[in-house]
Simulated assay, not measured.
Amino acid sequence: MVAGHLRKQNGYFQMILSYKYGDGKRRTKSISTGLQIKGNQKRAEAMLLEPRKNFNSEDAMTDKNTPFHKFLEKWLKDKMKSLDAETFALYSYNVKIFIKPYFEKSKIRICDLKTSDIESYYNHEKSENRATKTVIL
């Protein structure tokens, strides 16, 4: 469970969650309750219990300096339970065999990723693996 408190802002209650991120630094996350301040103190306090109990600091923030291929691996792991087995297997295969090796070589971080990087990947797949537009999409 993470620490949390309520803050009054712009006439509404905000839930403020405080946690330690992977780098050991303390971080906060603000979540609006949508409840107006007048007459909703107890409801807001009750709402605060759920996010505190279920909060996962890994889901809250991805470090902007994370390499894109590492982000994709984490994304796959997170989506494993919500996707049907066939879709997950297809995504996993494509990420591990095609996408990850390309972006691992280029060392592109999430904060640096641009549409031109994705286009470069598509062009690479067309030229190196003779992939058609249909296969890429």
Rank of each mutant, 00 (worst) to 15 (best):
A44P: 03
K105E: 15
Y122D: 00
K105D: 14
F88P: 00
M15T: 02
E119Q: 12
D117Q: 08
A89Q: 04
I31T: 02
G4L: 07
W75K: 05
L72F: 02
Y19L: 08
F98A: 08
F55Q: 07
D59E: 10
D23W: 05
S116H: 02
S120T: 07
Y21S: 14
P67N: 08
D23Q: 03
G34S: 03
T115I: 14
K105V: 11
N40D: 04
S18I: 15
R109N: 09
P101I: 13
S30A: 14
I118A: 06
G22A: 10
K42G: 01
E119W: 01
F68H: 05
W75T: 08
E125M: 15
E50V: 07
K20A: 12
R52H: 00
I16V: 15
K100R: 11
Y91P: 00
F68A: 06
K107V: 08
K64S: 13
E125S: 12
E119I: 12
F13K: 04
K114C: 05
S106H: 15
K105N: 11
L90V: 09
K20G: 02
I37P: 05
D112F: 03
K100S: 13
K25R: 13
A46S: 10
K81T: 07
G11K: 06
K107S: 11
P51D: 07
K70T: 11
M47W: 03
T134S: 14
M80K: 14
C111V: 10
K29C: 03
A3M: 13
K107R: 14
T134I: 12
C111I: 14
K96G: 09
A85E: 12
E104A: 14
L35M: 04
A60T: 04
K105Q: 15
N10F: 11
F98P: 00
K133A: 09
M80F: 10
K53S: 04
R130A: 11
L76H: 03
R130G: 09
N129Q: 09
K29V: 04
L17M: 08
K20Y: 15
K77H: 08
T62L: 13
S120F: 03
